[in-house]
């Protein structure tokens, strides 16, 4: 039952993300637009390029969707509403997100198109930049919770949410989340103005619909992870726990999309330089500060 509820929740979240994205790009609010867009995509031809690596081409969209769903499997919407409360939940998310890279490399290489291929390699470069900024803030969160159980991590925020307890970690994780989801300003793999949609360029019809759904679900999963790790997950007064979770996830997803709307795409050299020269030292500082605070009993 939990699985069904979580999957439906993710789909509803993906719909909300699509709505918001539509609102930002077109400036108008049309509640049925994502549904019509999806139906139109399913009704359009879905072709295979002339010399594809067929296995990679066909598997990539599905793998992206699966990776996004797996990441959400260890994230609780309420104390009992979770697919798998693994003892290594914090690590499991990293493992699931690693397959985003695999999916995008496959989507880049599979169709045998130049724009897609460059897009796929670009994501590899992006992973080198952001990966430590996903892992290190989760480490600091686990230090405070003294556990990798995601439910325990939420429980550790009964007093202060991690957003206030370790704001540096929250900021770094949020930025890295944008990069994982290849959302603007880190949309280098699918840049419209540079690669004519990059990894998405050669996908059409139903395959494109799955690829886009995978990306939306990924945004929701990362927003849920941010909520669990830094915003106290289901914690909150008056409302039922799952409502708090849903509200927080939607708020983070909206923030992710809004941030990209107001910022231009980051250059590759800047991304690498900022992540390694600034981001990683700050993440280390965050771990140190949290360690000291935990030792001091704060």
């Amino acid at each position: 039952m939990s699985v069904l509820i979580i999957v439906l929740g993710l789909l509803a979240g993906a719909y909300a993300v699509a709505l918001l994205e539509d609102r930002l790009t077109r400036g108008s609010f049309a509640p049925a637009a994502p549904l019509l867009a999806a139906a139109a995509l399913l009704a359009r031809e879905s072709i295979v390029t002339r010399k594809p690596d067929r296995l990679l081409f066909e598997t990539a969209p599905v793998l992206l969707l699966i990776a996004a769903l797996l990441a959400a499997a260890v994230l609780p919407l309420s104390p009992t509403l979770i697919v798998a409360d693994l003892a290594t939940g914090g690590l499991f998310i990293n493992a699931a997100l690693a397959y985003v890279l695999v999916a995008l490399l496959m989507a880049g290489w599979g169709p045998d198109g130049a724009y897609a291929m460059v897009g796929g390699w670009r994501f590899l470069g992006q992973v080198i930049a952001y990966s430590m900024l996903i892992v290190m803030p989760i480490t600091a969160v686990a230090i405070r919770a003294e556990s990798l159980l995601t439910t325990a991590i939420v429980g550790s925020q009964e007093g202060w949410w991690n957003m206030f307890y370790q704001p540096l970690g929250f900021l770094l994780f949020f930025i890295a989340s944008l990069a994982v989801c290849f959302l603007p300003p880190f949309d280098r793999p699918s840049a419209e103005g540079e690669l004519a949609a990059g990894v998405e360029a050669e996908y059409t019809g139903a395959r494109l619909a799955i690829l886009r759904l995978g990306r939306m679900v990924l945004v929701v999963s990362l927003a849920a992870a941010t909520s669990v790790f830094f915003l106290g997950g289901w914690l909150g007064p008056w409302l039922p726990p799952w409502v708090w979770s849903a509200l927080k996830v939607l708020a983070v997803a909206a923030l992710m999309l809004l941030a990209g709307y107001y910022l231009p795409r980051v250059r590759e050299e800047h991304l690498l330089a900022w992540c390694w020269k600034l981001g990683i030292p700050l993440a280390l500082l965050n771990i140190f500060i949290v360690g000291v605070m935990v030792l001091a009993g704060l």
């Binding site: 002339r50 010399k51 050669e202």
Partner: peptide
């Protein structure tokens, strides 16, 4: 004749 299998980038991919 291969309209449906044509490739937007021509032969500029990894092949």
């Amino acid at each position: 004749s291969q309209e449906e299998n044509s490739d937007a980038a021509g032969d500029s991919g990894h092949h």
